[in-house]
Design a protein around this nucleic acid. Structure first.
Length: 409
RNA sequence: GCUGGGAUAGUAUAGCGGUUAGUAUAGCGGGUUGUGGUCCCGCUGACCCGGGUUCAAAUCCCGGUCCCGGCCCCA
């Protein structure tokens, strides 16, 4: 074919695709604002050190890193949280807390592209700096609201919640190896139940633990409590969230080291896709970056999986209406320009024909661009002091005087 | 890092050793030079690259490149 394709793992957003992207962002912003979260931004380029600090040099394999002309080690940001941590360390002293902040960064990861995974992607982030259990509930409710607002209901997704502290207590009580146990939990849904318990048998012979892992949701939590482990925070959290959407699930552990308490992930109910979003409480990140110890909670929603589910559920918008298209016939451009200027002064969406297309072609163009109305300004009519206003949906049209337009439209 | 599949017009596809490389859709032009959507006609437009096998390759073989999946990982 050709070698004009874009770079591996990136996506090209023509107006058609970008409109959907913007629609998604608009939803995220709307709900975030409703929850009183403030938007912020951060540089796409950062010092490499900021990303290797917490995750070690290993992470370099997954980063787009490079040197600037003075030899400084830099990279394209692969996540937002370290930048947020940097902001808090750098500017946090002067900011009243708690902070409820969100952002929709473009992120870059050097990894193999897969379904719903790209090398360049967007990931909505919302965090509460200086948070508590109520804050965690607020973030979870925010996420549920976002998904609801996009048209996803409780039959479509479930918010799975776990508490890392509970997992850690299980690990201690049943004397299993932390890494092995986490890794097994994480893989729970990737294997059959039989396989899972066969694997579990290799790392623990405990009948109690086995029983816990056989149970689900509330029953699982109750069983854990019965075995003397404190599950109070989970119970409190359940009171603060909408039960319709949430579920306790021990297998939600999240990969990263920085989560310390409650963690959560939303999944489509059919289990077609990877997680739709994920987040949790992190208490040590700010201090790890040299700041004070501040409990935080955050969530990330990337544009990898979520649009796949929305598409499957036919929830992506297909039509974006524009308002007024001004078509011209003959030498009327000056007058058309004046009219456009007046209407635009009213903040209306006005497309002014600048082409030499004939009226048929202009109407076709207006139609394909989804304009609701066309104002036809023709030489012949204009001599009579008239223009034609046509409704593209109904096909009806009427003659009006140019000076009436600002009233009518 | 490990693996499976694939590559034909802008897009989606048919063809599976000999085809004027077919179809749909989009684009452009016309039917209709002051009226779009429907309809009709026309035009533009493609076999990823390199090598091999063969009288003959889009088709078979080898290598490359790229794409799409899965595993690992997933902040």
């Amino acid at each position: 074919m050709n070698n004009m394709q874009g770079y591996r793992g990136t996506r090209d957003f023509l107006p058609k695709e970008w409109k959907i992207q913007k629609w998604l962002f608009a939803n995220l912003r709307e709900i975030s604002n409703q929850y009183g979260f403030e938007e912020y931004e951060a540089p796409i380029i950062e010092k490499l050190e900021l990303f290797t600090k917490k995750s070690g040099d290993e992470i370099k394999k997954q980063l787009f890193n490079f040197k600037d002309k003075s030899g400084r080690e830099l990279c394209l940001r692969a996540e937002l949280t370290p930048q947020l941590a940097r902001y808090i360390v750098q500017y946090g002293k002067g900011l009243k807390k708690p902070l409820k902040w969100y952002s929709i960064p473009r992120l870059f990861r050097y990894e193999r592209p897969q379904k719903g995974r790209y090398r360049e992607f967007f990931q909505y982030n919302a965090d509460i700096i200086d948070s508590n259990l109520k804050g965690t509930a607020e973030i979870i409710n925010l996420c549920i609201d976002i998904l609801n607002n996009l048209g996803l209901k409780s039959k479509d997704f479930v918010m799975k919640i776990n508490d890392r502290e509970v997992v850690d207590k299980l690990i201690k009580k049943y004397k299993v190896k932390t890494e092995e146990f986490y890794s097994l939990l994480d893989k729970k849904y990737k294997m059959s139940e039989k396989e899972f318990f066969k694997e579990l048998d290799k790392i623990s012979k405990s009948k109690e633990l086995k029983k816990i892992l056989k149970l689900k949701d509330k029953e699982c939590l109750a069983e854990i409590k019965k075995n003397g482990i404190n599950t109070e925070r989970m119970e409190e959290l359940f009171k603060l969230c909408d039960e319709e959407f949430i579920e306790f699930d021990l297998s939600i552990v999240r990969g990263l080291a920085y989560y310390t308490g409650i963690v959560f992930e939303a999944y489509d109910k059919k289990g077609y896709f990877r997680s739709l979003l994920g987040g949790g409480e992190y208490d040590n990140l700010i201090s790890d970056f040299g700041g004070p110890k501040i409990p935080c909670v955050g969530v990330g929603i990337s544009d990898g999986t979520l649009p796949l589910l929305l598409k499957k559920k036919k929830l992506l918008p297909t039509e974006f209406k524009n308002y007024l298209f001004i078509a011209t016939i003959g030498e009327v451009y000056e007058k058309a320009g004046e009219i456009a200027k007046e209407l635009r002064a009213k903040r209306l969406n006005v497309y002014l024909n600048t082409s030499d297309l004939n009226i048929s072609k202009q109407l076709e163009l207006a139609d394909s661009l989804n304009y609701q109305k066309v104002l036809i300004i023709g030489e012949r009519d204009l001599k009579k002091g008239e223009v034609t206003l046509k409704d593209l949906e109904t096909g009806k049209e009427k003659k009006v005087k140019p000076q009436e337009l600002t009233e009518i439209l």
